[in-house]
C-alpha cells in the first residue's frame, strides 16, 4: 500500500494535506442554514444532466427522419430508457428553477455589489445558456409542440432589426426549419452550450473562491463565535444530503410523471394550442402583449438591464440615497415574472 502511495507521490508531487489545503475552503457560517446552502444545487443537477445526457446520446439520432423515432425507441424499448429520459427532463426543470432561485438569492442579498459585478454578469451568461440549453433540448424530441416552438422562436429572432434575419438563419441553418436544424440544435444542446457553460462555471467558482462567499450575519448567532467551518467533510455532507434528496425527488417525479411524447412534428399542421416550456411562459406572454419588434426589443432591453444591474444599482443608490431601492425593484420584478408566468399558464391561447 505504501509502495503504491510512494509510486504515485514520486510522479505526482502533491500530498493529501496539500490537496485538503487547496480544497478545504473555509465555509461561512450562514451556510449551515439549509436555505442558504442551495448554491450547489444547480451544479449538482448539471452533473446529473451531463450523465443522463451522455446516456441519451447513445441512442438519440439527430436528424428529422429519425429524431422522433429514436426518442420513441428510448422511451419504449431501451431498458430504463423512459427513466433516464424522465430524469433528464425533470432535472432540467429543477435546474432552471434552481438557477433562477439562486439568482434571486444573490439579488435580494445584494451580493452582486462591488467587487462582485463581474461574477454577476458571468452568472447572467450562465442563466441565458441554461435557458438556451432548455430550449434546444426540448426541440430535439421533434414533436409537434417543440417543432412549432422552435419555428416561432426563430421567427421572433427575425423581428429584431438588422441582425435578426441573420440570427434566425444561424439558428435554423436556413430560412426555415430544414434538415440542418435538428443537428444544429443537437450540437448546441450537447456540445457547444454545455462546454461554454463548464468554462463559465469554472470562472464563476474561481472568482467566488478568490473573493470569498458573501458573508451574512444572522441576529441569533453569537458575533464572537467562529465565523467559518470546514468544507471537508462538514459542508460536503451537506451537499451529499442535498444531492440525495434531489436524486430521490427526480426518481419519484420520473416514476409518477414520466416524460411523454406528443405527436410527431408535422410541418403542415400547426397545433391549436402551442406553448413553450414553462420557463419561457413569461417571455411568451410578454411577446403576446406587445407587437413584434417592440416586444422583442423591450425583451432585449430587460435582459441588458439585468446584465448591468450592479452598475445601475450603484447609480440609483447614489441618485436616490436609498440603500434598499434595488430590493423593492426586485420585488416588483418577481411579481411581474410570477404574474406573467401564471397568466400564460392559465390562459389557453
Amino acid at each position: 500500500m505504501s509502495q503504491i502511495k510512494r509510486w504515485f507521490q514520486e510522479r505526482l508531487p502533491i500530498s493529501g494535506l496539500q490537496l485538503a489545503e487547496l480544497t478545504n475552503e473555509p465555509v461561512p457560517n450562514h451556510l449551515r442554514r439549509w436555505w442558504w446552502c442551495l448554491g450547489g444545487t444547480p451544479a449538482y443537477l448539471f452533473v446529473v444532466q451531463i450523465v443522463t445526457g451522455i446516456l441519451l446520446a447513445f441512442y438519440y439520432q439527430p436528424s428529422p427522419e429519425t429524431a422522433y423515432q429514436s426518442v420513441r425507441r428510448i422511451t419504449e424499448e431501451v431498458n430504463y430508457g423512459w427513466y433516464i429520459r424522465s430524469v433528464h427532463k425533470w432535472a432540467a426543470t429543477l435546474m432552471i428553477a434552481a438557477v433562477i432561485l439562486h439568482q434571486m438569492r444573490v439579488y435580494f442579498t445584494a451580493a452582486y455589489r462591488k467587487p462582485r459585478e463581474i461574477n454577476w454578469m458571468i452568472g447572467m451568461c450562465l442563466l441565458l445558456i441554461t435557458l438556451n440549453i432548455g430550449f434546444t433540448g426540448y426541440s430535439l424530441v421533434f414533436e409537434q409542440l417543440s417543432y412549432w416552438g422552435a419555428t416561432v422562436a426563430a421567427n421572433i429572432c427575425d423581428t429584431v432589426p438588422f441582425v435578426g434575419v441573420y440570427a434566425k438563419q444561424l439558428l435554423l441553418g436556413g430560412d426555415s426549419y430544414n434538415e440542418n436544424t435538428v443537428p444544429r440544435f443537437y450540437i448546441l444542446h450537447a456540445a457547444v452550450l454545455p462546454v461554454t457553460m463548464i468554462g463559465l462555471l469554472v470562472i464563476h467558482i474561481a472568482i467566488l473562491r478568490l473573493q470569498g462567499v458573501t458573508e451574512l450575519q444572522f441576529e441569533d448567532e453569537p458575533a464572537d463565535g467562529p465565523q467559518h467551518f470546514d468544507f471537508f467533510p462538514d459542508h460536503l455532507y451537506t451537499e451529499l444530503i442535498a444531492g440525495l434528496v434531489l436524486m430521490i425527488l427526480l426518481s419519484v417525479l420520473a416514476t409518477i410523471f414520466p416524460a411523454t411524447m406528443g405527436p410527431q412534428a408535422n410541418p403542415l399542421i400547426t397545433p391549436e394550442e402551442i406553448k413553450p416550456e414553462w420557463f419561457f411562459y413569461a417571455t411568451f406572454r410578454w411577446l403576446k402583449l406587445f407587437s413584434g419588434t417592440v416586444a422583442v426589443l423591450s425583451m432585449g432591453f430587460i435582459v441588458f438591464t439585468m446584465f448591468v444591474w450592479p452598475f445601475i444599482d450603484s447609480g440609483l443608490r447614489r441618485l436616490t440615497g436609498l440603500d434598499d431601492i434595488s430590493f423593492w425593484i426586485g420585488i416588483v420584478g418577481v411579481f411581474l415574472l410570477v404574474g406573467l408566468t401564471t397568466w400564460e399558464a392559465l390562459d389557453a391561447h
Binding site: W82, L244, I248, S251, V252, T255
Partner: peptide, 18 residues
C-alpha cells in the same frame, strides 16, 4: 446520508417496478 441513500434505493426499486 445513510438513510437518504437507502431512500434513494427504495425510489429506484419503484423505478424498477415501473
Amino acid at each position: 446520508i445513510g438513510l437518504l441513500g437507502i431512500l434513494f434505493l427504495l425510489s429506484l426499486v419503484l423505478v424498477q417496478a415501473m
